[in-house]
């Protein structure tokens, strides 16, 4: 992993100096999440999926058949790499320096996201724990519902500034604030 990219958060120029008290609608940019891509080899999909589900302290995000993102704010990248390496029949790639993790939370979160994504996020169709790839602000991201009013977005690093600015614009009428967070 590139150390420079890891230590300089992509949103540093967008956020530094603007950190205010969090409002009810708040967007957190996670400082140093560990994010890994896992692809199951053909025929190993079920085995790899159950292997991922048994790891503690990580969230497993669905991307496609046999493809997941494994996200953790607690485990470091090295620990995670070693843990994932034990799963047979899977290819594992460290994406921590190539993806950013945003967490958006608040009573108006669905109204805000409705302006950025074209997928119905009603809890009947997109329950807590659901995750999938989709377009958000014209960028292909992975969006997950981690709570009733909480969503987590994994954004490709180079697009993160643009996605961030657009979400903040969409959240302006709901007084959306933003800050870095460690976990």
């Amino acid at each position: 992993m590139s150390l420079t990219l890891f230590h300089q958060h992509v949103l540093e120029d967008h956020l530094s100096g603007f950190e205010a008290k969090a409002n009810p609608n708040h967007l957190a940019a996670i400082r140093r999440p560990a994010i890994f891509s896992v692809l199951a080899h053909r025929g190993h999909e079920v085995f790899v999926k159950s292997g991922l589900a048994s790891i503690e302290g990580v969230q497993v995000r669905d991307c496609a058949p046999g493809e997941w993102l494994v996200v953790s704010t607690g485990l470091g990248a090295v620990v995670m790499e070693n843990t994932l390496a034990e799963i047979a029949g899977a290819s594992v790639i460290d994406q921590s320096d190539g993806r950013a993790l945003l967490r958006i939370h608040g009573p108006n979160v669905r109204r805000i996201l409705a302006k950025c994504v074209a997928v119905d996020l009603h809890p009947d169709g997109f329950a807590v724990g659901t995750s999938t790839n989709m377009l958000c602000c014209h960028v292909a991201v992975n969006l997950a519902r981690s709570g009733g009013d909480t969503f987590e977005i994994v954004v490709p690093r180079s697009f993160c500034g643009s996605v961030f600015e657009e979400i903040m614009e969409m959240g302006r009428e709901f007084a959306l604030t933003a800050a870095f967070a460690d976990s």
Partner: peptide, 18 residues
Amino acid sequence: MASLITCPHCGTRPKEEF
């Protein structure tokens, strides 16, 4: 959204995703 396509893996999505 003009046209919706139901992906067997992802569900109903706008054509802009394809």
